[in-house]
Computed example of a mutant assay.
Amino acid sequence: MSPVNGEFDGRDYPTAENSGHGQTRTQLPDGESHGFGDTRRGNRSGFSNRNLLTVVAVVVLLIAAIAFANRGGGSAGAGSGGSSDNRDTNRDTAAQPTAPTGEKPVSGKNGGIASGFPKTEQGAQSAAANYAVALGSDGMFKADRRHEIVAAVHDPAVVGKLQGDLDRAYSPKFLANVGLKSDGSAPNGFTFVSRTVPVGSKATKIDGDTATVEVWCTGLVGLAGESSTKPVSETWFTITEKLKWTNDDWKIESSKQTAGPAPVGGDDRASSAEEITNAVEGYGGFTYAR
């Protein structure tokens, strides 16, 4: 993703189907301390600057922040989803409920991010979901942590160029548009929220040492605090990650994001800035296993 103009429009209500084999479960990682909370209904993001999008096309989760930063201007649009080879049509493609399975999640960690995924379809889906969470975190807005995240989840062959591209994308001007200081920290009295929550995943192609996985996500992004002009809002998007088996693990070779599918907004009461801040500080994130 890249710092480009866009806005939340979030009023399309396409149906969504999550196909997969095996069920999804989540487990809290040790020592994780940040979290997310309920918020008022926001809208999802769009793009207009193709050049910057191309620059950082292998990173996918800055889109929501861009739309958040530029809320109220620009026209909404969705990136090209591209096409993927389908798996055997005789295989079961019915949506599976979210429920625990008997398998343990991966125990490895690389820079605080789950690692050591098996070379299986489920392993590829788990990797893609966990990498989506990492790339959608608030750590991406701080240079040192961003470098760690990018190196941990990407194929080493693409890391060098990507780091430079992202450093230019997360410029002081862009951070100011988001409402952050030049070092990526929130102003005094505010809590910056950027969190991605996978809803479901499916592998659309498995071929030896490569895999393509789609992860349907919802996200929270904004500044929580009294008198915030950029309150925390929700987004819905689908991330497509092309993974490569390298160094005995799945790593991202390239990725892209499209808007939706987005459900109809509910009638939930918008929480106060204090409630959102307390939730962010009090609820930890998850390690996702397929």
Rank of each mutant, 00 (worst) to 15 (best):
T212W: 01
W216K: 07
S45D: 02
N278G: 02
L180M: 00
L166Q: 10
A99T: 12
K251H: 11
V56T: 10
K244V: 10
R40Y: 01
Q257H: 05
Y170H: 03
G139K: 14
V221E: 00
P29H: 09
V4R: 04
G284W: 10
T93N: 08
D209W: 12
K173W: 06
W216Y: 10
D267E: 03
G72Y: 11
A114M: 12
A114W: 11
Y288N: 01
D144E: 10
G225P: 03
A152R: 04
P187F: 11
N49K: 12
N278F: 07
K142F: 07
K256T: 09
L166W: 08
A64N: 10
R50P: 00
G72W: 07
V153D: 00
S48I: 15
V153T: 02
G184V: 03
R91D: 04
N51Q: 09
A114N: 10
Y283G: 05
R40N: 01
G200V: 05
T93H: 14
N90I: 07
N51V: 13
S126R: 01
A132M: 10
E253H: 13
N130L: 02
P97Q: 06
L52W: 12
L61D: 11
D268G: 05
D144A: 15
Q125W: 03
F8C: 07
P97N: 05
D85E: 10
R44K: 13
S115F: 06
S75W: 12
V58D: 08
A76Q: 14
E253F: 11
V59Q: 04
A259Y: 13
T39R: 12
S137G: 10
A151Y: 02
R41V: 05
V60C: 02
P231R: 11
E274M: 13
N90Y: 13
D267V: 09
Q122V: 05
D268F: 03
E32F: 14
S19M: 05
A67Y: 00
R44H: 09
S185H: 04
P118A: 05
A273V: 14
I66S: 04
G219H: 06
T210L: 11
K242M: 05
V4W: 03
S227T: 09
A152Y: 01
E214M: 08
L166N: 06
A203G: 00
P187I: 13
S84K: 14
P100Q: 15
R145S: 03
F237W: 13
K142V: 12
N130H: 02
L52Q: 08
S48V: 12
G112M: 13
G160M: 11
N43A: 09
S228M: 14
D183C: 02
N110M: 14
A57C: 01
E226M: 12
S201M: 14
M1L: 07
D249M: 09
A67P: 00
F117N: 06
A134T: 02
D88V: 06
T246I: 15
T93Q: 13
T229E: 06
G22E: 02
V60A: 09
S84A: 09
T101P: 00
W245Q: 04
Q122C: 03
N86I: 15
N110R: 15
K142H: 08
I239N: 01
A270Q: 03
A176N: 08
S201L: 08
A262T: 13
V232E: 03
A132K: 12
N177E: 07
F36P: 01
A57Q: 08
T210A: 07
G111T: 07
G285L: 14
S115L: 08
K119P: 01
S80D: 07
V159G: 01
G31C: 09
D138H: 00
